[in-house]
């Protein structure tokens, strides 16, 4: 395995780089798109159930199908990485829009009401109170989206653009274990690292969640 790495480190590195790019760009775009959509699902209660259902259907489209079909829809080349980025952005939005809505809905109405009674206007209340309180839920969703994106990128290899997934197809075609194992290990490590970073960000942003069981006598 070391041998394979030393002989092919350029290929592996390029695959890893592409993998990171293909997995994380959709996360950023998806988060920016999902926040307002999720908010609408809370602002207009009638919109919540359609939102959840549409997100569910989008999420159930097989990634392979989406990768293959997007070029037809967008007029892009079949081998263009943008297909993967758009497809994974769709999954990210499908997952996060619902998470954002659920996170905002999970904010205790007592808290929003006391904010209103203290004289918060709607928009400022959203940014000062509701979003921060919903942050743990939203970040938990972000962890799921990031980790599953990183593992989904590989499927793109079936249409020729798949980051570490290309190591799988190469090994599969040549009946050669090393690249497959290296690909899996790197993919899992990458997911673990990304997950860890989000956890650290969460700890920094939500210090109050670490003190759930304090409380002395009155």
């Amino acid at each position: 395995m070391i041998q394979y790495l030393t002989n092919n480190h350029e290929v592996v590195l390029a695959a890893l780089q592409q993998h990171i790019y293909l997995a994380l760009l959709p996360i950023l775009i998806g988060l920016v798109v999902a926040l307002p959509i999720g908010y609408l699902g809370v602002r207009f209660p009638w919109f919540y159930h359609p939102l959840v259902n549409v997100c569910g259907v989008l999420y159930s489209i097989p990634s392979l199908a989406l990768f293959v079909f997007l070029p037809v829809l967008l007029g892009t080349k079949i081998l263009a990485p943008v297909n993967i980025v758009v497809a994974l952005t769709i999954y990210t939005v499908a997952l996060l829009a619902r998470t954002v809505a659920d996170g905002l809905r999970s904010v205790d109405p007592v808290i929003t009401q006391s904010a209103t009674a203290m004289g918060y206007r709607r928009l400022r209340r959203l940014f000062d109170v509701e979003l921060p309180v919903a942050l743990p839920v939203i970040l938990a969703g972000l962890r799921v989206a990031t980790v599953s994106n990183i593992s989904l990128v590989s499927v793109g290899a079936l249409i020729g653009v798949g980051g570490l997934g290309q190591l799988f197809t190469r090994g599969f075609q040549l009946f050669y274990l090393e690249p497959i194992i290296i690909g899996i290990i790197l993919s899992v490590l990458l997911a673990g690292l990304a997950d860890l970073i989000i956890v650290l960000v969460q700890r920094a942003l939500t210090p109050w969640t670490r003190h759930q069981h304090g409380g002395g006598a009155a």
Binding site: D108, I111, S114, A117, G119, Y120, V133, W208
Partner: peptide, 21 residues
């Protein structure tokens, strides 16, 4: 509404404190 409410103190049953502050 918002200006009116800023001039009126409001206390409720479970205090309704902001957990993140």
């Amino acid at each position: 509404e918002a200006v009116l409410r800023r001039g009126i103190g409001y206390v409720i049953q479970h205090a309704g404190l902001f957990p993140h502050r």
